[in-house]
C-alpha cells in the first residue's frame, strides 16, 4: 500500500484540518469536535439548514458540498463508517436558524440509524427535522424496490436543488419536497476497475482479477450486477446509459442533467471519453442534455472506475441546478 499519509488513525482528522486551513472563508468547525463542519456563515437566521454526513473516503462527498446554495453542515465519520448520533446532533444545532433542518444523506444502515437518533435529540431541543435519503444506485435494487437502493453520486443533484431552495428561503416542508422530488428522478450506475485500499488496515474494499470490470459495484465495494472482461469505454457507456434510460423511463423529448463521475483513480480524460458516448446516445434518442457535470463528485478513495448519473429535469429542477452555489469543491456562478 502506497499512500501519502501520516498516522493512519489521524488520516480523517488531518484531512479535515487541511480543508479548514485551505478554506477558512467557506467552512468552520462550530465547536470542539473536528468531525462537525458547517458553512462559515452558519447558522442563517430564518433559513432551513441542510445537514449531510457519512463516512470519509468519498471526497468531494460529503464535506465538499458545504457552502452557499448547497449543504449547511456535515457530520463526518471514519473511512466508510457513519458519524455518531451525537456528532450529527451537534451539527444540527450549529446550523439551526429557526426554520428547521433537513437531513439529506445516502441510504446506508449506519447513517440512517444515527441520523434518526439525532432527529430525536433535535426534537427535544425543539428543532424540527425532516429526512430525505439519496437512493439512486440502480444496480443495488430493482425498480420495484427503489426505496431500498443505496445512495451514490446522484445525491449531488439533491444537494444542489435543495440547497438552492433553502437559500431562497423555502420552508422545511418545501425544501424536503424538492429534495425528495429530485431523488425520485435521479438514477446512477457505476463500473469498478480496481478496489479501494483502507488506510488503517491496508485491506482492499473488493477483489477483482486483472483485466476484469464490475458493473454496478457500490462505492464501498458492494457487489454489482455483472462481472466480466474489461470492455471499451463506448461499450461500458452503452451498458450504463441503457440501464439509466430504462429506470427513469426516458423518451424522446425528455431533458436530463448528466453527471459523469470519477471514483478516485480514473483520470478526467477517460471521463470525457465516457461523456462523449453518453452525449452521442442521448442526442441520438432525441433526449436533450440540459446540464452536464464531468469530474470527481463522489469517490471511493483510490478506486478506479466511474459512474454515470441522470436527473430527469423540468423547468423547476433545472432552475435550481442553475442557481448560484459556492463550496470548497463546487461552484456555480
Amino acid at each position: 500500500m502506497k499512500k501519502i499519509i501520516n498516522e493512519p488513525d489521524r488520516f480523517v482528522d488531518e484531512m479535515i484540518e487541511g480543508i479548514l486551513l485551505a478554506h477558512p472563508d467557506l467552512v468552520k468547525t462550530p465547536g470542539t469536535d473536528p468531525r462537525v463542519l458547517v458553512r462559515a456563515d452558519a447558522p442563517l437566521a430564518g433559513r432551513v439548514g441542510i445537514l449531510t454526513g457519512g463516512g470519509s473516503g468519498h471526497l468531494p462527498l460529503f464535506k465538499g458540498y458545504v457552502g452557499m446554495g448547497l449543504c449547511s453542515g456535515v457530520a463526518i465519520g471514519n473511512v466508510f463508517s457513519s458519524p455518531s448520533s451525537q456528532q450529527i446532533f451537534e451539527a444540527t444545532k450549529a446550523i439551526s436558524g429557526g426554520a428547521g433542518v433537513l437531513y439529506l444523506y445516502g441510504n446506508y444502515g449506519g447513517d440512517v440509524f444515527n441520523f434518526d437518533l439525532a432527529g430525536d435529540l433535535a426534537e427535544l431541543e425543539d428543532i424540527p427535522t425532516q429526512t430525505v435519503v439519496g437512493r439512486d444506485d440502480v444496480a443495488s435494487q430493482p425498480n420495484e424496490r427503489k426505496t431500498d437502493r443505496r445512495g451514490v453520486a446522484g445525491i449531488f443533484f439533491a444537494y444542489k436543488a435543495a440547497g438552492a431552495a433553502a437559500e431562497r428561503g423555502d420552508t422545511l416542508e418545501e425544501v424536503a419536497a424538492i429534495a425528495e422530488d429530485v431523488v425520485e428522478h435521479t438514477a446512477t450506475m457505476g463500473v469498478g476497475l480496481s478496489p479501494t485500499i483502507f488506510p488503517t488496515t491496508g485491506a482492499k474494499s473488493f477483489d477483482l482479477p486483472e483485466g476484469e470490470m464490475e458493473i454496478g459495484i457500490g462505492i464501498h465495494g458492494e457487489p454489482g450486477i455483472h462481472r466480466g472482461p474489461l470492455e471499451t469505454a463506448d461499450a461500458i457507456a452503452d451498458r450504463l446509459v441503457t440501464a439509466l434510460i430504462a429506470d427513469l423511463d426516458l423518451t424522446a423529448g425528455d431533458r436530463v442533467a448528466v453527471l459523469v463521475n470519477g471514483l478516485g483513480a480514473t483520470p478526467l480524460e477517460e471521463l470525457y471519453v465516457l461523456y462523449r458516448r453518453v452525449h452521442q446516445i442521448l442526442t441520438g434518442l432525441n433526449i436533450s442534455i440540459a446540464k452536464k457535470y464531468v469530474g470527481e463528485y463522489a469517490t471511493s478513495l483510490e478506486m478506479a472506475g466511474a459512474s454515470i448519473s441522470f436527473l430527469k429535469v423540468n423547468d423547476a429542477r433545472l432552475a435550481l441546478l442553475q442557481a448560484p452555489a459556492k463550496s470548497p469543491f463546487f461552484e456555480e456562478v
Binding site: S84, S85, Q86, F89, N114, D116, L117, A118, D120, L121, E123, L124
Partner: peptide, 15 residues
C-alpha cells in the same frame, strides 16, 4: 455521556 445507548434511551423517553 453521548453514546448510542444514551441516544436510544433518550429517543425512547421522548416517544
Amino acid at each position: 455521556n453521548p453514546s448510542t445507548m444514551a441516544a436510544l434511551v433518550a429517543g425512547g423517553l421522548l416517544a
